[in-house]
């Protein structure tokens, strides 16, 4: 298993990918209709997943595939559809021709500067990989990325899972006052269709299986809680869109506990580490792997719920079928 068995074919794939990615990026920035730009962006995320595979970052590729094409696509496509009526007025805000030229030149200069940096990267490249490989066995996990996320740089991961909660509070906080505490209402509610219902009934069991598999496997192989949580969130949202379930009301106390339990368990184990292993977020000898798995399991649930609710948007109304539009008409 050599890294580049055949240099030329591999390089052709890479070059094709780069051209495609740049072409789509150009389309996203330059096309006039926002909806087309968003569709281009979804395709762009898909290609980026393949790019990550080519860069030997399979963990990242999974995250990109799940977040970039799945959840972000839903979020942005929905927003573009709802913003379409306002779009015609946007043309007025365009900067003038000369200003655009100037901006273009400056951006090109920045890109060229970055390109120069890429070409001048030190060779041999500095790396922390040997250090990680050396320190991986004590953690008991076999996937170096998971090891970094949960053992070596656990503070980053903790802050990240904490930061998702304020992000959700931020989304909720743009709700209109009377709607506070109600059910999220940004999800699209298409006309009920048997195909959609079928998809929402058949796909989630597979999705949940794959999500659990990703989390469980993430200890030793590519995968992990973010990827698994994204899949779980996507399945939940699919069920909500199909109308098989209603999104939970924001004031629901059990929901709120679910949202923060992951970070709390993480912090709790981290604080316990001060006494048991002499450092915040350190794991006692021999217990690293079970503790990491426990944290991953609870964090997965919390992250999945948070991601799903981020997509579902701010609370809209208490009306069972109430979207934003219904609540506005009545008010």
């Amino acid at each position: 298993m050599t890294r580049y068995p055949v240099m030329t074919s591999a390089l052709v794939v890479d070059a094709a990918l780069v051209l495609l990615v740049l072409g789509l990026a150009l389309w996203v920035t330059s096309t006039r209709a926002a909806y087309s730009a968003v569709v281009g962006f979804v395709a762009y995320g898909l290609l980026m997943a393949i790019v990550w595979v080519r860069l030997a970052a399979v963990d990242v590729a999974m995250t990109e595939a799940a977040l970039g094409t799945g959840l972000t696509g839903l979020l942005l496509l929905g927003a573009a559809a709802r913003l379409a009526p306002y779009e015609a007025a946007e043309v007025n805000g365009r900067p003038g021709r000369w200003l655009r030229l100037l901006i273009g030149l400056l951006c090109a200069a920045i890109a060229l500067g970055l390109a120069a940096v890429v070409l001048m990267l030190p060779d041999p490249a500095p790396t922390l990989a040997p250090l990680v490989a050396e320190n991986l066995p004590p953690t008991g996990v076999g996937n170096p990325v998971t090891g970094v996320l949960l053992a070596h740089r656990a503070i980053d991961t903790l802050l990240e899972s904490v930061v998702l909660v304020p992000a959700l509070i931020g989304v909720w906080s743009v709700a209109a006052d009377p709607a506070w505490g109600g059910r999220p209402g940004s999800l699209p509610r298409p006309r009920s269709s048997s195909a959609l219902t079928l998809l929402a009934q058949v796909l989630p069991p597979f999705g949940i299986l794959i999500g659990i598999h990703l989390v469980w496997n993430g200890a030793d192989d590519p995968g992990g809680k973010f990827q698994g949580a994204t899949v779980l969130a996507a399945m939940w949202i699919l069920v909500l869109i199909a109308g098989l379930r209603e999104p939970p009301a924001v004031r629901d106390r059990r929901l709120r506990v679910l949202l923060v339990i992951g970070a709390l368990v993480f912090i709790g184990i981290g604080v316990a580490g001060i006494w048991l292993a002499d450092a915040f977020l350190a794991y006692p000898e021999g217990y690293a792997k079970p503790l990491i798995l426990a944290i991953e399991a609870v964090l997965t649930l919390s992250i999945a719920a948070t991601l799903g609710l981020l997509l579902a948007g701010p609370p809209a109304s208490d009306h069972p079928s109430g979207g934003l539009y219904e609540s506005k008409k009545s008010g």
Binding site: R3, L67, L128, E160, L164, P222
Partner: peptide
């Protein structure tokens, strides 16, 4: 695995935070 796992872990963190930020911006 044939890449430095530290930047890769940072990218994963970054992707998730970028999604959260995007959803706030959209809201």
């Amino acid at each position: 695995v044939d890449g430095d796992p530290v930047p890769q872990a940072l990218i994963i963190t970054g992707l998730v935070v970028a999604f959260a930020a995007t959803s706030i911006a959209v809201a």
